[in-house]
Design a binder for these strands. Sequence first.
DNA 1: TTTGTATTTGACCGATCGTTCAATAATGAA
DNA 2: TTCATTATTGAACGATCGGTCAAATACAAA
Lengths: 211, 211
Amino acid sequence: MPRPRAFRESEIIEKALPVFWRAGYEGCSITDLTEATGLQRQSLYNAFQDKQGLFSAVLKRYRQGVEESLLPLRVPGAGLHALRMYLESVLAMQRTGGFGACLFVKTSLDPIARDAAIRDTVEAGGARVRAAFAQVINRCKKNGEVPANTDTAGHAAYLYAVLHGMSALIATGGTPKQAAAVLDKAFSGSPPPAPAKPNHKAPKRKAKERH
Amino acid sequence: MPRPRAFRESEIIEKALPVFWRAGYEGCSITDLTEATGLQRQSLYNAFQDKQGLFSAVLKRYRQGVEESLLPLRVPGAGLHALRMYLESVLAMQRTGGFGACLFVKTSLDPIARDAAIRDTVEAGGARVRAAFAQVINRCKKNGEVPANTDTAGHAAYLYAVLHGMSALIATGGTPKQAAAVLDKAFSGSPPPAPAKPNHKAPKRKAKERH
DNA sequence: TTTGTATTTGACCGATCGTTCAATAATGAA
DNA sequence: TTCATTATTGAACGATCGGTCAAATACAAA
């Protein structure tokens, strides 16, 4: 019997996401958010409790987007090539989007990260990405694309660090050429620590194989 | 003939630095800064023009500290071992200090980085670090510690990315063990792309050699 | 000791912050 | 049509924001 909402929450969240992403939690105001979403203040408060409630919803939505972006890594044939393409696509999106870094990383450096719930969400998000990387690496160990004695979590953390390190590099004046060199180094120098034959680029057409 | 200052600017800047570092430019208020420095508002404004003026001074001071931290890399004998120790010391300091990342990186993600002067300072700071890394790598190329055909700027950017990537890793829930794995990978997998003999840890006592 | 000059002090500015109140509007159930 | 319930609207809340004003203060040159 009550009056129905004139908006869908998901739509509001998606409009608020880039605002938070660009400016950070402290860096954007409720007015910024009402202007971006088209909602009145009170409607926003009705739906999301307060600014932090909206931000939490935005973080969840962001995580959902991250999960979707990880889908190419979930496919059975996805190996190092897919991983590299993932890193490249994230970097490309960050460049075009004009946000300087992953929202999880940005948020972790924001004072709002003192809040335990926010911090938990951020850390869980990062862990999901690293777990997806680890999944690929484990597959590559069975493949032979990566030495079987590789420290999976360690290598996943390594690629995760390379990804966000490239963001930091670009954000602090690094050139695209330098970022490309980083990527090359990360994917050329990492597979051959154990096997005798250091031939790189060996399993070229491994993606889209049988599952 | 005028009344002398009751404080040294450098002292104020050093007290303001951790405040900005922890909370970011937008995240701390003038009141935070007056409380941390012990100065009254007007004295602060007299000395630094405005909030951004103080922040600029803090950034310069931070850069000075970075330069000092780079000194061990400037010494003639400093090689890959010194570089690795540098990365480790930065990480250790970030852990003890409780700021989540390099102030340059944090600032680059802050809305204040839209200001051209701030952005320039941040990028110049990052470039100085990368240049110091490159200096070491060049030395190592002559040493033989690193292949002579190495892309110096690229490898410097790589280690720079690894450093800040580890920060991001830890900030988003990565474990110290994972960070250690990243560091190992960065320093074990990088030297041997060109030379035939993949013996690592060869030039052990290269530091503190003749200059 | 007088005087000029800059610092210190503390109150104060308008603007904006996140948040809320009260009135109005719109719906489905009765 | 009436009622109960929630959404919307727009004004307003106290607190805090960055920044400033004006008087009192302390020094050095004269």
